[in-house]
Design a protein around this nucleic acid. Structure first.
Length: 175
DNA sequence: CTCCTGTATT
DNA sequence: AATACCGGAG
């Protein structure tokens, strides 16, 4: 649900969604129109509805697999959703990389000597940055940080713990 | 107008 | 690399 969708928007519909479809079995038997009616405010609802139902159908027997390859085979499961599911859902020590994490690392490492990487290298960077333990806590902290402090526009650098060594803040124009 | 806890297709 | 999918918030 969080793909290209802000968390407050997801929060608004999540309660109704989970009450209507508490299990993958329920999703497998969902009426497509009713499902769309609930998730419509998220946008991307056609893809999402089809994916929810297909994932339900394919995992109703046994629930969501914890296996990396089986998860990746499911519709609309790319690198981000795969790692987010394994980390947040199943407690594996996995990095995440999305537009928030990309923005945070790009700022912190700006003009630091490690500020030039392509998309593939961002995942490599995320792997390097992952602490030895508590990946889940670290990743959630990263997302909260990107949402509340290191925002896309007008970040709250005056409240940021990292401003002392952040390349973005250190290179800013005014004082 | 751009962007958001992206993915699949071209 | 570019685009479609999509509503909602800034």
């Amino acid at each position: 649900m969080l793909k290209q969708t802000r968390s407050p928007t997801v929060h608004r519909i999540y309660q109704e969604f989970i009450e209507e479809y508490p299990t993958v079995e329920a999703l497998a038997e969902a009426d497509r129109e009713e499902l769309i009616e609930i998730i419509q405010p998220l946008g991307l609802y056609n893809y999402r509805a089809d994916a929810f139902i297909e994932i339900g159908e394919r995992t109703a027997d046994g629930g969501l697999p914890e296996d990396e390859d089986l998860l990746s085979d499911l519709p609309q499961v790319g690198p981000y959703v795969l790692n987010a599911t394994l980390c947040f859902g199943f407690g594996e020590e996995r990095p995440i990389m999305d537009t928030n994490v990309e923005r945070i690392y790009s700022r912190v490492f700006q003009n630091s000597g490690v500020d030039e990487f392509d998309e593939g290298d961002f995942w490599e960077l995320a792997e390097c940055m992952l602490p030895e333990r508590e990946a889940r806590q670290y990743n959630l902290g990263l997302l909260d940080f990107g949402y509340s402090i290191c925002t896309h526009s007008s970040p709250s650098c005056d409240e940021c713990f990292a401003s002392e060594y952040c390349g973005y803040y250190q290179n800013r124009d005014d004082g």
